[in-house]
Design a protein around this nucleic acid. Structure first.
Lengths: 216, 216
DNA sequence: ACCTGAACACCGTTCAAGT
DNA sequence: ACCTGAACACCGTTCAAGT
């Protein structure tokens, strides 16, 4: 038992992680820089480095915290319904914090806390009749679809909120050649509306139906 | 008709775009910086700005060029097969140049030249019996799945090639609690192998089957 | 018109030093 | 142990000037 001496530390991992999350949630992932974080904490950049090895490690801490505090859904008994519910829950938790998915894809970082979701999906898929290998492949397909939806939607939102000028897409669609691209031309003026609709579950159900076709 | 006078320009849009592509293809997207590009061209950063408004505009030029030079597949007559072929072609073209997908999601940039792919997919989906709205939603689902696959795979490759230390995932899987996560524990040692397999088309076929279920 | 040089306002991270 | 200050090697972009 060592008696603490000296000044009490002003910084701590907990304070740093809290400030980092605050920064990301109010100003976006790109606002999280070691220097800005230090300023927010009233310290020098190097004071942060004394508590956290580097920026990657900080992102990992953020990830673990988010996964640990996430509320998990109660799963239905029917395995097919369970598969849908678990995937949807994973997406609903990640969607409001797209930076997590950005980190997950960018660095193959995976919090131990987050394993609950692949476990639930794998388990449901196997109970639906898929053998282990096919269940893993099914999980991968669902993860591709889910991560894609979150990343694309987040990028679109970011652009919409940040941008001065109208999206480049509008100009492309305005100039579209109806002879060459008749299908696109026909829906061009409704594109924004159609892509704004939340069709995640629709697509997920289609994917799951296709993945489970011919089994169970 | 103005007669050109003065020194011939050393830089040009074409030279800049070519050097940028070279830089990306040999060193990755993150290596494309205006300063490094200028150095590569033997000029100052500002010389580049004289030919291209900013970095976003440069990425757009790169995109247009890639889409314009891409080889398009011949499409089968059967609309369902056509849907698969068009989506696969889109993915096969984007997979070796994942930075394009990163740009596409990050900035909603869309080259007029690239419209061929959504047009082909939309057309095939509608010939399969989907009405316009559902066809657009189907295209979106396919794009989420495709972009997700490309981005996640590219990120994994990047990490694998760059990294000194083994992926964090390995450590997480080594420490896995078999009581709490039995399904994951059972496949943990084969996870890398299973996720390395190219299951894009398998997942695509499942997704398309699900999207087209009950029509046509 | 085409390009240079210096500057501004940033990054992540290291190194040496202070208490 | 905990933190500061200065520095290194970078960014994208602007401004003023040269030919």
């Amino acid at each position: 038992m060592s008696t603490r001496t000296g000044r009490p530390p002003r910084l701590s991992r907990a304070r740093i992680v809290a400030a980092a999350r605050e920064l990301i949630e109010t100003h976006g992932v790109q606002a999280l820089t070691m220097r800005r974080l230090a300023t927010e904490l009233g310290a020098t950049p190097m004071a942060v480095y004394h508590h956290v090895p580097d920026k990657d490690a900080l992102l990992l801490l953020l990830l673990e915290e988010a996964a640990a505090t996430a509320v998990r859904p109660s799963l239905p008994a029917d395995p097919r319904a369970r598969l849908i519910v678990a995937a949807r829950a994973m997406r609903d938790i990640l969607a409001p914090v797209p930076w997590i998915t950005e980190v997950l894809t960018a660095d193959d970082l995976l919090s131990p806390e987050a394993l609950w979701y692949p476990e639930a999906i794998l388990d449901a898929a196997m109970e639906c009749g898929l053998e282990a290998d096919r269940a893993v492949h099914a999980y991968r397909s669902i993860w591709y679809y889910t991560a894609g939806e979150i990343l694309i939607r987040a990028a679109a939102d970011r652009r919409r909120s940040r941008d001065d000028r109208p999206p480049f897409r509008e100009q492309v669609f305005a100039d579209i050649d109806a002879e060459q691209f008749p299908r696109l031309a026909a829906v061009a003026d409704r594109w924004a509306e159609l892509t704004a609709a939340d069709t995640y579950e629709q697509g997920l159900r289609a994917l799951v139906a296709g993945l489970l076709a011919g089994v169970g």
